[in-house]
Structure formats: structure tokens, C-alpha cells
């Protein structure tokens, strides 16, 4: 072995991170060796704390450091509107917009039959439990606009519509700042279908 055992272990640990190969892991490990001790301790504690103290919100499934996340715990939010997203990271993306005042429900993935992920592997049962409260007026389906996201949206819509709740889907179309000439026909036809009066 070229490196002493503690460094070799650190390299091995860095290699577990997504997108980090042996070379990058080696570079990161040597970088850590050159950091002041307190910074290394800070990084290590931050990782352990994040792992130990992060929970999932009991209501929506979002990341949280308590039983209820910052959105579900906010009394000013409109609890009659639920936005359904695939992943807790999508909640953060939506919150950056600062326009949505409702609450969320995190499914924890999307239906992907080829990967063996069906409705039972997602938090759809928990969503239906929430809807039973009777106070939900609208369910916004904000799953990703790809085939798995669409399939998930179709499935959720199919199970929720009989409950008499309004089900909506976020719009599809061109991203802000894009050139029309580079848009593909699927995106363009969806954008055309979703046009509105101006």
C-alpha cells in the first residue's frame, strides 16, 4: 500500500461519495490532511450531526430536525393546498420560488416499473391518509416532467380523483431564457397545449 493505513481509509471513505473516483478521493484526502485540526473536527462533526439529527417530517416526509418540518409547523401556510413532490430536495427548489404558500407531500421517489419501484414503495398511502382529513381542496402534482414523474402523477391522480379533490399538474413548457429553435418537439407541443390567453 502506498499510503499509511489512516490515509488509505480516508481515501476509501471519500470514494463512497457520488461521482468521486480514486484520483479525486486521493486529492480530497490530502487536502484534508493539510487543514487545521479544528476544521477537520468541524467537518466530521457536521457529517455525524447531519446523519444523527436529521429526521423526516411526520406529516409530509420532508427533511427536518424535529418531528414536524419548517413548512408543516408554519401556521401561516395554506393547509388546504398540498403540493406533491418526488424528493425532499424538490421542496427546497419550490421554496426558493417564495410564491407557493401551501404545504407539501414528499413521495420519496417516482414509479419506475423496470427498477421495481411501484406505488407501494412510495408514500402514497400516507398521502391518502392526509386527504382523509377532509380539509384538502387542491392537490398539485409537481413530480418531474419525465416519463417516471408523469406515470407517478397519473397514478396519484387516479387514486385521488374519486375522493372529489381538485387535482392539478404543474405546467410543462420552455424554460425561461431558452431559445425556441433549440426546443424539442415534445416540449414545444406541451408548451403549445398549455398556452393561455395573453
Amino acid at each position: 500500500m502506498l499510503y499509511p493505513e489512516p490515509i488509505a481509509r480516508l481515501i476509501e471513505a471519500f470514494q463512497k461519495l457520488p461521482g468521486v473516483g480514486p484520483k479525486t478521493a486521493q486529492r480530497l484526502a490530502l487536502f484534508v490532511l493539510n487543514l487545521p485540526r479544528e476544521e477537520v473536527v468541524f467537518m466530521a462533526r457536521a457529517m455525524v450531526d447531519a446523519k444523527d439529527k436529521t429526521k423526516y417530517c411526520q406529516i409530509c416526509g420532508n427533511f427536518s430536525d424535529s418531528d414536524v418540518c419548517f413548512v408543516c409547523g408554519d401556521k401561516r401556510r395554506d393547509v388546504h393546498t398540498i403540493c406533491v413532490v418526488q424528493d425532499a430536495r424538490d421542496v427546497l427548489a419550490m421554496e426558493k420560488m417564495r410564491e407557493f404558500k401551501g404545504v407539501y407531500h414528499v413521495l420519496g421517489g417516482a414509479i419506475s416499473p423496470m427498477d421495481g419501484i411501484g406505488p407501494d414503495q412510495l408514500r402514497i398511502r400516507q398521502l391518502l391518509e392526509r386527504l382523509k382529513s377532509g380539509q384538502i381542496r387542491e392537490l398539485i402534482l409537481a413530480t418531474n416532467p419525465n416519463v417516471e414523474g408523469e406515470a407517478t402523477a397519473m397514478y396519484v391522480s387516479r387514486v385521488v380523483k374519486p375522493l372529489g379533490i381538485r387535482v392539478t399538474r404543474i405546467a410543462h413548457g420552455l424554460p425561461v431564457g431558452a431559445d425556441l429553435e433549440y426546443a424539442d418537439e415534445v416540449t414545444l407541443s406541451r408548451a403549445l397545449e398549455g398556452r393561455r390567453d395573453f
Binding site: 416499473p113 416519463v147 397519473m154 424539442d184
Partner: peptide, 21 residues
């Protein structure tokens, strides 16, 4: 470049499941 997007298969849950199969 898209030649055929098979839109019907994406817009119907059962057809999508068959397509995936």
C-alpha cells in the same frame, strides 16, 4: 433528435407499464 416520442404510451398508465415491460 426525436424520431418518435410514443406520446400515447406516456399519457396512459397501463400502456406505459406495458412499454416498460
Amino acid at each position: 433528435e426525436i424520431v418518435k416520442p410514443y406520446r400515447k404510451l406516456r399519457e396512459d398508465l397501463l400502456l406505459f407499464a406495458y412499454g416498460q415491460y
